[in-house]
């Protein structure tokens, strides 16, 4: 069986040669124990020194990172902290379809008959358009329960980052940078919640 130093050389050679070099898979070549820990530490030292990957737009698109990068960029501007980057991921992790989540959220809030409005607000949460300060704890309690996370953690993630953009929030820019899928969702939504009569759903999402 090869030792950690030999496997490091092979790993580096594979990584720099552009081969698939999943560090965890390389660790699996050694049994649990000191030699495996040594290999992990050596690969860690190597990766911490690795230069930035040279920009390759095609490889970036193929990597599947683009949707995350888009959401992360929106999170830099949103009044809802990292919700745009995190909420879709939590929903995916919980394996809940968006429509099911909205139905459960509306039900938990006693707003089954206003599911379309809840849907609109939830969409604004996921796209960072809804200021998190206005969202009532009851919404976050219900959402947290559906997503398996605490309301406090959701609240914390919704805090905006400091030193934001000058002037008005670039809401129009969100629309410009939204993915095709988001645009389709948006087009299918009812009129903006703000244009409808203020009710208890508005209170829950904007008056908290």
């Amino acid at each position: 069986m090869a030792d950690a130093h030999t496997l490091l050389e092979q790993y580096i050679s594979a990584h720099r040669g552009g081969e698939e070099a999943d560090p965890a898979a390389w660790l699996d070549r050694l049994p649990d124990g000191g030699e495996r820990a040594k290999l992990a530490a050596l690969i860690d030292a190597y990766l911490s020194r690795a230069p930035m990957r040279e920009w390759d737009p095609d490889a970036f698109r193929a990597s599947g990172l683009a949707p995350f990068a888009e959401r992360a960029n929106l999170a830099l501007y949103s009044e809802a902290g990292s919700w745009p980057a995190v909420l879709p991921q939590l929903r995916e992790k919980a394996r809940i379809k968006r429509s099911d989540l909205v139905a459960r959220l509306a039900s938990a809030l006693g707003a089954q008959d206003k599911q379309a409005k809840v849907n609109g607000y939830y969409h604004e949460m996921e796209t960072g358009l809804l200021p998190s300060d206005g969202v009532d704890d009851r919404v976050l309690d219900a959402l947290g329960s559906i997503l398996g996370q605490s309301a406090e953690a959701l609240r914390s993630a919704g805090r905006a980052v400091g030193a934001g953009p000058q002037g008005a929030p670039p809401a129009a820019a969100f629309a410009r940078t939204a993915s095709d899928a988001q645009t389709e969702i948006e087009a299918s939504l009812p009129k903006a919640a703000a244009e409808q009569e203020w009710d208890e759903v508005d209170q829950l999402f904007r008056g908290g």
Binding site: R53, A59, S63, L65, A69, P165
Partner: peptide, 25 residues
């Protein structure tokens, strides 16, 4: 970001995220 230029920051975010992937591995 300070200038509110979402498109420009989006390009920088993409390049940075892609560039950091080896380190983040």
């Amino acid at each position: 970001r300070t200038a509110g230029d979402v498109e420009a920051s989006g390009t920088a975010v993409a390049i940075l995220i892609y560039g950091l992937m080896d380190n983040v591995q």
